[in-house]
């Protein structure tokens, strides 16, 4: 039995390694679809077509569904791990054929588990900026999301969110009930806005259960480059080493010529 397992492990590795390298290329051709588990404390199995596609999927776990782009998953059911107890009966799910999407299993405003499908903005970001998306996927009422103390997104309900491009750097982010300034239910936290990167923040958990927290996801490589590099508005001065050397060479040549003239004069004399 142990040998059989080792064999399986070896085969697994042999197959997995090439697949790891192939995956990004595949993803670029069609859609990029990630599935995130965004419900704290609940391990699930995910079933489609009557069989488990993956098991023991727990909070924060992420699966790449890009290989299923354009397909219809029939009879998708999220079940409590190891049981037939259905937590989310999602029915048939058509996965987009192209685009960049995140599917997140999360709690609705009333605490009922649900699947949210969000399209991510992967357009190019201006040089020097990063992109921030926040999504309300927690069992909580409408909220305002504050950046550096100001409301960046107001009246955000469960299942909604917003995206903004910001200068790269750090912002202080916090979440408060809509229209209020306190209590701060998430944060305040220093959020690094990295240049050329899309940071997606999901508020998850439940306000009533005191399990509110955030999950994050990043999409890299959206940067653009400076238009140009201007590194001079005047000509080098003669004081520079290069000019000085030219000068020295010139003087030496002149001196040499002078010597020649003198010598010739002497010869004539």
């Amino acid at each position: 039995m142990r040998k059989a397992l080792q064999f399986v492990a070896a085969i697994t590795l042999a197959i997995t390694l090439p697949m790891l390298f192939l995956a990004p290329a595949d993803a670029q051709d069609g859609a990029r679809i990630h599935l995130i588990h965004g419900i704290p404390g609940v391990d699930v199995d995910v079933e489609a077509g009557g069989e488990n596609v993956f098991e023991g999927f727990s909070f924060g776990d992420t699966q790449d569904l890009s290989g299923l782009a354009g397909a219809t998953l029939e009879g998708v059911r999220v079940k409590a791990a190891g049981t037939d107890t259905v937590a989310i009966d999602a029915g048939d799910i058509e996965l987009p054929a192209s685009g960049n999407f995140t599917v997140i299993a999360h709690l609705g405003a009333d605490g009922t588990p649900t699947l949210g499908v969000f399209e991510n903005d992967v357009s190019t970001i201006a040089a020097g900026e990063g992109r921030l998306t926040v999504r309300h996927t927690a069992a909580a009422p409408e909220v305002d999301i504050l950046a550096n103390g100001e409301a960046a997104f107001s009246g955000v309900a469960n299942g909604a969110g917003g995206t903004v491009d910001l200068p790269a750097g750090t912002i202080s982010a916090s979440v408060v009930p809509a229209g209020e300034t306190e209590p701060v239910v998430i944060g305040p936290a220093d959020l690094p806005i990295a240049e050329g990167q899309h940071l997606l923040v999901y508020a998850v958990g439940s306000l009533d259960d005191d399990t509110l927290t955030v999950l994050t996801e990043t999409i890299d490589g959206l940067h653009s480059n400076p238009d140009r590099i201007d590194t001079g508005n005047s000509v080098p001065q003669t004081g520079s080493n290069a000019a000085l050397m030219l000068l020295v060479a010139g003087v030496a040549a002149a001196a040499g010529a002078g010597t020649l003239v003198v010598a010739r004069n002497r010869a004539q004399a």
Binding site: D61, L73, E74
Partner: peptide, 30 residues
């Protein structure tokens, strides 16, 4: 479940092999 007409969405093993696990989404602020 899905027949051949629905593209890649054939059940069971075929679904599994088109799905791959990624590093978990980080919990908390980065």
């Amino acid at each position: 479940a899905a027949g051949p007409d629905s593209g890649q969405a054939t059940p069971g093993s075929d679904l599994s092999e088109l799905v791959s696990e990624l590093p978990p989404a980080p919990v908390g602020f980065p």
